[in-house]
Amino acid sequence: MSEPLFVFRGIEKSFAKNKILRKVDLFLYPAKCILLSGKNGSGKTTLLKIVAGLEKPAEAEIEYSGKSLSWKKAIRNILKEIIYLHQQPLLFSGSVESNVAYGLRFTSLNRKQRRESVIKALEWSGLTDLANIQANTLSGGVQQRVAFTRAWILKPKVLLLDEPMSNMDHESREQARLLLCRMKSAGMSIVITSHVPQYFDGLTDVQFHLSNGQLAESKFSASNDSL
């Protein structure tokens, strides 16, 4: 197995006096998909938000590309390399195209390159026809695809998805699964939380269960990188 991109060791987090995460370790490898399961309120979302740099842990040791970093130093790499997608994606006011292009303005691409990237990304996700539609008027499934595309265009090394298929019909789920398989094939490390592991058959490499603030490996499934 190749070297992990990020290693999070001993993550601890409490809300008030309630300890949500106790010494949780997480290793993120390129082109691997982790499925996280657990009851509502078990801390799955909190764990993903800590890994995404959106919540500060009480304690955590972070390694990036083999180097041990403090939280303050790691946060820069985390925000650059890891993208978190909410259970219900938040699309900004404006068109699908402007949403997809949002993160590109913080890259080194010039205007022309950004435009080309957006066109390519919209084609990749089959959203070209919807490019000029107001993003927040779309159905839940299509909004999730816009959110995937907005993340994919930035080529993050790690993608964190919180219950990505909870509000989708069968067709939207299949489309989303196909996009995720393509992302994984492109080398992205993917972490998904879900109550329904079957949605991700063929995509998941390892499954963890979060209970009482601790992470336990619950099942291995065959990797399917053919897509």
């Binding site: 995404a52 993208i83 993340a151 930035l154």
Partner: peptide, 25 residues
């Protein structure tokens, strides 16, 4: 929505631009 700030940050927006994004929304 708190997700406006979180989405802007996770998509790589610097702090000042994330604040402007929240203001715009």
């Amino acid at each position: 929505d708190r997700r406006v700030w979180e989405t802007a940050r996770t998509l790589g927006a610097p702090t000042w631009f994330s604040i402007l994004t929240v203001f715009y929304e």
